[in-house]
């Protein structure tokens, strides 16, 4: 798998209209390998034929429920999965996530949100196989997250530290969106490190020195006062 869009996706839902909608949405987003199943039995057959890279599961199915289906599959193989269900109770959401699913999205959903969450899961699950973590293009500068190398036209390549790479990875995963201090701290140091903003500021400053043309007036790695940081979208230049 070189690109996320190469992932083989199995979509399980009992509603043919919804299957058609998601299929079309994924197709439009560039995903080429899509299979669908309308029941647990059909899903088992599809799984036995070829192991998919990603599962999108509904919970209410005619011959069983998505939770047990996922449990059954999860016991054999670790396939990334997202529950897509009309059940919006916290209990269902937490149960699904507790089973080991990577995400839980309730219907109705925004297509864009489904795509972003899928991308996020796929990128994390298949980081090693994907084209080396991907490349982040920042105008004249480009960062290869795989080998943590910053290349800039007319300058010597710079190397990112592990912390800087993790920060940039988190920001790039949510490119165009604000990421809170807390989420960044968690991405770098793990859960429970709330309030390490000063330490975070130091790493951000170092990261800016490597990726920004003018680190004191950043155009890519932006501060959002009081909230966190944001990696500006590619359209901006």
């Amino acid at each position: 798998m070189r690109r996320i869009q190469d992932a083989d996706i199995l979509l399980v839902d009992d509603n043919p209209a919804l299957l058609a909608l998601v299929r079309e949405a994924l197709h439009n987003a560039g995903y080429r390998s899509l299979r669908t199943a309308e029941s647990c039995a059909a899903a088992r057959r599809a799984l036995a034929a070829v192991r998919p890279d990603f599962l999108i599961l509904d919970i209410n199915l005619p011959d069983g429920d998505g939770f047990s289906l996922f449990q059954e599959l999860h016991a054999q193989e670790d396939i990334p999965a997202l529950f897509l269900s009309a059940r919006d109770a916290d209990a269902d959401r937490l149960f699904g996530l507790g089973l080991g699913a990577d995400d839980y999205l309730t219907k109705p959903f925004l297509t864009q949100e489904l795509l972003l969450r899928m991308q996020h899961i796929l990128r994390r699950a298949y980081r090693a196989e994907l084209a080396q973590g991907g490349t982040v293009a920042l105008g004249a500068c480009s960062v290869d997250l795989g080998d943590a190398l910053v290349t800039r036209a007319g300058a010597a390549p710079a190397t990112l530290t592990a912390t800087e790479r993790a920060l940039l990875q988190k920001l790039a995963d949510n490119r165009g969106h604000i990421v809170t201090f807390d989420a960044l701290c968690e991405a770098v140091w793990g859960d429970g490190y709330y309030g390490y903003e000063n330490a975070l500021n130091v790493h951000i400053r170092h990261l800016r020195e490597k990726i920004e043309a003018d680190p004191s007036h950043p155009v890519w790695l932006l501060t959002v006062r009081g909230l966190g940081y944001k990696l500006a979208g590619e359209a901006k230049a």
Binding site: L18, L21, V22, A86, D88, K107, P108, F109, L110, T111
Partner: peptide
């Protein structure tokens, strides 16, 4: 939710 998902999706 499911019909609404279809309306919104399309």
């Amino acid at each position: 939710r499911t019909p609404l998902a279809l309306i919104m999706g399309y």
